[in-house]
Design a protein around this nucleic acid. Structure first.
Length: 364
DNA sequence: GACTAGTGTCGAC
DNA sequence: TTACGGTCGACACTAGTC
């Protein structure tokens, strides 16, 4: 095999597009899909917005109040709460079509997947491009969904190619074009490089991937640690060997809520904490798991984080033990808690399966 | 030096 | 000038142990 052929596919402005789907009148209006917190009013953040709304600078993750301010003088802007069950239905219909186009399929999220199509395209990028166009057409005709596809010889470059032109894009980057494609792009297009990492590069007066390549792997390892440094070094050169492979089971379950009001009172927090424990434990039991690690998380009034976690003696799925441990962690944390707490979370991890352990001694 | 536990940071969606 | 979700994963760093 000379090279692989990899698709990255992404549904355009997914949640907002779903909303347009069940209410076509929205299509001509700015639509912002919001995660409203329990605090009431416009407390919360933007999940996604359609392109009408993006014109006004609305972006994912932005406070809802900020988005409203940006569209103040608009009469027809629409703010909707998320309906994840509905988005999941649409996602599942779409993903079931996408699977049939792949030799190997990797689910990334409700609106995103990788496909290895090396075999069925016989490593031919012209064929790959036609196949991708067919897939886009099929999604549009049967699910009414618009999507963007990036094609290259690895996951990294395919993903960057998807972001290169959207919505409704199709970008092919053949192996011998990878360098000239990446060189002029800003460093931030590399997945895993967000705001903080970008700042580090800007301090070094490095803006583009071509400039990033001036740093050797030792310098990058010094700045980011060994794994991340080496990853960035390779990414700048379009090198990525990670295979497309089906996702495994989750390795942690967590629940977090925004409190009705900031507090550091044990009595107030313990009520919420118990509810969070129940929610997490429900999911654990449903999936037939036992956990060995329990953690709690505070998001403080200044939005900084505190976490505290503990390993259990033995794996368990017991609600009593989860609550007991979480409440203990809460008590210990509050002992030296200075800032008020805005959000409270619970996490369990280090799973093993409760049954299906099928007795390893049987093998001997 | 290898390993585990615990805390914190960063980032994707 | 502020404003701020929920869920998940990777990994850096540190301290303790052997």
């Amino acid at each position: 095999m000379q090279h692989r052929v990899i698709f990255h596919i992404d549904f355009d402005y997914f949640y907002a597009q779903c909303e347009e789907l069940r209410n076509p009148e929205l299509k001509t209006k700015p639509v912002v899909v919001c995660v409203f917190s329990d605090r009431g009013g416009d407390s919360g953040a933007v999940a996604t917005a359609n392109y009408q709304a993006r014109k006004y600078g609305v972006k994912s993750g932005m406070p809802i109040k900020f988005a409203k301010r940006k569209m103040e003088e608009l009469q027809d802007a629409v703010f909707l709460p998320t309906d994840f069950d509905y988005y999941s239905e649409i996602s599942e219909s779409a993903m079931s079509i996408i699977r049939t186009y792949a030799d190997i399929f990797e689910y990334v999220g409700k609106d995103e997947a990788y496909l290895d199509v090396t075999k069925r395209t016989e490593e031919d990028f012209t064929r790959a491009s036609h196949l991708a166009q067919q897939l886009k057409n099929s999604l549009r005709s049967s699910v009414k969904l618009s999507s963007t596809i990036g094609i290259s010889s690895n996951k990294l470059v395919s993903k960057i190619a998807t972001d290169f032109k959207k919505p409704d894009g199709l970008t092919v980057v053949e192996p011998d074009k990878i360098e000239s494609f990446l060189d002029p792009l800003p460093i931030k297009v590399i997945p895993g490089i967000g705001k903080k990492s970008e700042e580090k590069f800007h301090e070094l007066e490095l803006q583009t991937i071509s400039e990033l390549k001036k740093l050797d792997v030792f310098a990058l390892n010094g700045l980011f640690g060994r794994k991340t440094g080496t990853y960035i070094y390779n990414a700048a050169r379009g090198i990525d060997e990670y295979p497309v492979s089906p996702r495994g089971d989750p390795i942690q379950y967590s629940r977090i809520v925004t409190l009705k009001q900031d507090t550091k009172s044990f009595d107030s927090l313990s009520k919420d904490l118990e509810q969070l424990c129940e929610d997490v434990q429900n999911a654990i039991v449903k999936d037939n798991l036992v956990f060995k690690s329990v953690g709690i998380q505070f998001v403080q009034e200044d939005l900084s984080n505190r976490t505290k976690s503990r390993m259990l003696k033995n794996p368990t799925s017991s609600l009593e033990e989860l609550k007991k441990t979480a409440l203990q962690l809460l008590r210990e944390s509050l002992a030296d808690q200075r800032l008020q707490i805005r959000r409270l979370g619970v996490k369990v991890s280090d799973f093993s399966e409760v049954s299906g352990q099928a007795d390893i001694t049987n093998f001997f």
